[in-house]
Nucleic acid binder design. Sequence first.
DNA 1: TTGAAAGCGATACCAG
DNA 2: CTGGTATCGCTTTCAA
Lengths: 340, 340
Amino acid sequence: MNQPTIADVARAAGVSVATVSRALRGLDKVHPETRERVLAAASELDYITSPTASGLASGRTRLVGVITPYMARWFFVEVISAIEKALRQQDHHVLVMDLERSEAPSSRHSLDQRTLFKRVDGVVAINVDMLDTEAELVRQLALPVVTVGSRFDTAPRIGIDDVGTATLAADHLIDLGHRRIAYIGKHFPGSAHTRTPSERLAGFRASLGARSISVPDEWIFESEWRARDAFASALSLLRAEDRPTAILAASDEMAIGALAAARELGIRVPDDLSIVGIDDHELAEPFGLTTVRQNVVDQGVAAAEALLAQLGLADPALAVDRSFPVELVLRRSTAAPTDR
Amino acid sequence: MNQPTIADVARAAGVSVATVSRALRGLDKVHPETRERVLAAASELDYITSPTASGLASGRTRLVGVITPYMARWFFVEVISAIEKALRQQDHHVLVMDLERSEAPSSRHSLDQRTLFKRVDGVVAINVDMLDTEAELVRQLALPVVTVGSRFDTAPRIGIDDVGTATLAADHLIDLGHRRIAYIGKHFPGSAHTRTPSERLAGFRASLGARSISVPDEWIFESEWRARDAFASALSLLRAEDRPTAILAASDEMAIGALAAARELGIRVPDDLSIVGIDDHELAEPFGLTTVRQNVVDQGVAAAEALLAQLGLADPALAVDRSFPVELVLRRSTAAPTDR
DNA sequence: TTGAAAGCGATACCAG
DNA sequence: CTGGTATCGCTTTCAA
């Protein structure tokens, strides 16, 4: 079945294509009665505007690029999903660009013109540190940008206070009486995702520093932000003769890995070891993990709004930095250290 | 900076736009020397074909719609990520359409013409049962389709043998000596995702039936396929006076929920209870979960290939059903039942 | 092998 | 408020 074009609608409604275009897009300066007739004809014919044609003519594709260092991780997929749903409500679609290079986890793919030019109206960058060439490209294309977590030029940044979040978690451990605290989640050099990891580590250090508590370097673990790697780190940490009484993991996925490691070694949580995470991942509750909760959906929606605002499709006041609150959630993985 | 158009390249190379178009797309009937000149001019100018214009003229958008009942779940995000990467290598992009309706988990969004018409060249449907209207629409638009898991008309279907997979897991429990086995993961009526759940349940029943083992209805749990819900189900199951010696969870996420429930109740795994899952989720290894492994990346790549094949961009022989092997992975969550 | 020109299906400016 | 028409940038006959 051949799809009808705007000309068909015009003919059916007895008006010009120009009028159809206006009527359909809800522009003013169209007589209500005329609009009525156009709408009727359009729905009668099952007419749908061709995105390609309208894109070519208007220069807007209604497509938004979402750039991410990896998509298959809790925070990332949750936020992408929220962005996608929010944008779809405004008739926009998401083009995911996963920079992860499975063959070589520490390096990553880069963006090129082909990916961006005329393809998308704007970009949401989720916790990616743009390469110089990418940044240059984005600036050159003058694409509206919103970031989640990381920073880019003066683009609106949506996120949480990562330093404060980690401080909150560390303070909790200290308040319980812990003084021997390890940290899992320092980023690898050359990672595509560095801002959040380094800020959380900074928050951890700030908290301990404020109470003059010191941490040996071997207790600060570089780790990919996922359970598997944290599991390995925690295993080696907990097998050592001299082990900490508490672990702060920079994400719940890592905290759960640490939990599994403790379980593996027969170390009781929280009796022998306290573990605190950050995120409030779906598994945190079933596993009784104490954590600092952040609301990812809110952040995704905010990112979508900030982008739409820059596209002139939402209140311009929404195109600003927004920092969302976090909250300590006490469960059963933390307790006062046992004297020994 | 204004982006150069095909006319600029033509001028620079001293040929017509038609020739530029051919040369750039690698069509034959272009003199090697001419092509050389065109390519040089194009790269000199940093020329990039406008996807919108080329889309309008050719009718191909190089966009593929990926339809999914939810994107923020292990299997789904992993397969989407694989599809996206595979397609990007062929210069195609993915438009994710997440049908999940957060307000009302049991219902879902539906696709409409706006989403599909002229927007995408083809569709990959991941475990979605299409509504009649959607199916009708897709047929009407004559869009190439590939499915992962579920079925659609005669479209190539990529997946595993779900019945056999569940049978394999159940057989393992039975072989260990279990006769009192519960199942978590029956789908809710009205769910958007039914085929895999019902096939796995069928596999479970087939396995037990073959040995004349019966299961009380209360031991078959309806559950959303995620840890949280399985946790709740397992809790009520394990609190009962009369409880099973083993649980088969239709996915690892649910198995992990069950693991947490056992831990919560002080039930030892595998001593007092065996748990087996399906998937080989990232957390399966750290938690020592016995499971049936499926390779999701392979399936994603295969789906991308099957779609590209239908678009004439890959070996036509790839546009066929493909069933991938699964494998039982023994870990520490299963053992012979203890007499009592 | 190459070029000229007719679309592709809208948008948006300029008149009326 | 409505219509005519140039334009967006490329693809694709049709001729040469």
